[in-house]
Simulated assay, not measured.
Amino acid sequence: MLKRHSERHRTDRIGWLRAAVLGANDGIVSTASLIVGVAAAHTPQSEVLVAGVAGLVAGAMSMAAGEYVSVSSQADTERADLGRERQELATDAEAELKELAAIYVERGLEPPLAQQVAEQLTAHNALATHARDELGISDNLSAKPVQAAFASAATFAVGAALPLVTVLVVPAALLVPVVSGGALVFLTLLGIVAARVGGAPVLKSAARVVFWGALALGLTAGVGALFGTVA
């Protein structure tokens, strides 16, 4: 009897990794940018902190709601497709078997072997086979709304907390450069960690998050300074 190998692939992590990286990145970028923009307008440090905390709470809830709604829509589509496939298997199993065999032929199997594979997999679990090979739906990659929502909210809060801590320990006159520099360091580390976990190139992953973070920080600092000057 053949043993199932225990090798784990990084595709198992796609759902939660995407939500976690997105949440942490947004937490750092949006909160640090908010703090930098408000501080650049010469706002008192206590008010900068209040704005940052408000941004953390609002952002975490927005991320959770956005992820839940988005991934729930994906899950609804998957359920609808599975329901349609279940109906087709019940009403026209022969056509579904031919469709499955044709898929395997397109992937490189000889027609007789493709037919044999389709028959055996259909006998084992017809719906799961069509879900995986026809619809591209599997347990590892299927939509999980609650998991995505919690991952996004939690990592957003962690990311947002990093620039907030800086506000507590840095003098008001140094908030803009220190928060900006700290945010870029945090974004670099986030890019490295995400690359390591996901198996992506480290330099490329870190560079893209730092680029967009620096752009956001620069723009909000400019807007804050402009409004501070006008005021």
Rank of each mutant, 00 (worst) to 15 (best):
E88S: 04
S46Y: 08
A101T: 04
D139E: 11
L100E: 03
K98V: 04
G181K: 06
A221L: 08
L121W: 09
G199A: 09
P145A: 03
S180V: 00
F227T: 15
M1P: 15
S180G: 09
E7T: 13
T77F: 13
E7I: 14
L34S: 07
V50P: 00
G199M: 06
P112L: 08
A39H: 08
V36Y: 01
T122V: 01
Q120N: 10
H5W: 13
L135H: 01
D81E: 15
Q120V: 14
G218M: 13
G59S: 01
E119P: 00
A214D: 04
G136I: 14
A32R: 02
Q115C: 06
V185T: 15
S62I: 03
L97R: 12
Y104E: 02
S138R: 05
V53F: 13
R4V: 10
A157I: 04
L121T: 03
V178N: 01
T188K: 04
R18W: 01
V176M: 00
L135N: 03
R132I: 06
A114T: 12
I14N: 10
H42T: 11
F227C: 05
T31E: 06
T43R: 05
A64T: 06
V193Y: 07
L22V: 12
V185Q: 09
Y68V: 05
P111F: 09
V230M: 12
S30L: 05
H42P: 03
T31S: 06
A216M: 04
A206K: 02
L82V: 13
P171C: 00
A20N: 09
I103G: 09
L168M: 09
T91H: 15
G228K: 07
V105W: 05
L175R: 00
A65K: 02
A161L: 13
D26I: 10
N25V: 03
V117H: 02
L189W: 13
Q74S: 14
N140T: 14
A154L: 15
L49H: 04
S138F: 04
G55S: 09
L187P: 08
G108Q: 11
V117T: 07
A80L: 15
S72N: 14
L189E: 08
A173D: 12
V179Y: 01
A60T: 02
V223M: 13
G66D: 14
L22A: 10
A101N: 07
V38H: 03
A194Q: 11
L187H: 06
R196N: 07
R107A: 14
V193C: 07
A118R: 04
Q45L: 14
A41E: 04
R107N: 10
A102W: 11
D12F: 10
A40Y: 07
V105K: 07
E99Y: 00
H124S: 14
I137H: 07
V167R: 00
S62E: 07
T166Y: 00
E110M: 12
F186R: 02
E94Y: 02
G136D: 05
V193G: 00
M1L: 14
F227S: 14
I137F: 12
I192Y: 06
A65H: 02
A114L: 06
P112E: 11
T220Y: 12
D76R: 12
R13N: 13
I14Y: 14
A225K: 15
V230T: 11
A160K: 00
